[in-house]
Amino acid sequence: MDAHEKIKSQLQENDVMLYMKGSAMFPQCGFSGKAVEILKACGAKFDTVDVLSNPDIREGIKQYSNWPTIPQLYIKGEFIGGSDIMMEMYQSGELQEKIQAL
């Protein structure tokens, strides 16, 4: 299964999916850590994929969403954004609404 198919199936299986560096317990980058904190603050149930231990996914996810950086948040398979956009949506309450609507 190539990266694209792996990503598609990961997104189908998880409503809230965060592609990040490291894990929720041990984020390996400030931006990924911030993304985890934001999701926790929203009370979201989410899954993560560590792109550092999956180099094929690390490149594949950038093509998949046409977005050059990590972390990347997906809700119901839709690309939401990186940590900047997550923060903006958290501050406006938009992210909480999306999560509570699940």
Binding site: N66, W67, F79, I80, G81, D84, I85, E88
Partner: peptide, 10 residues
């Protein structure tokens, strides 16, 4: 939307 705006900059 924000994603499209940022993609334009990228």
């Amino acid at each position: 939307n924000r994603v499209q705006q940022h993609q334009l900059v990228y």
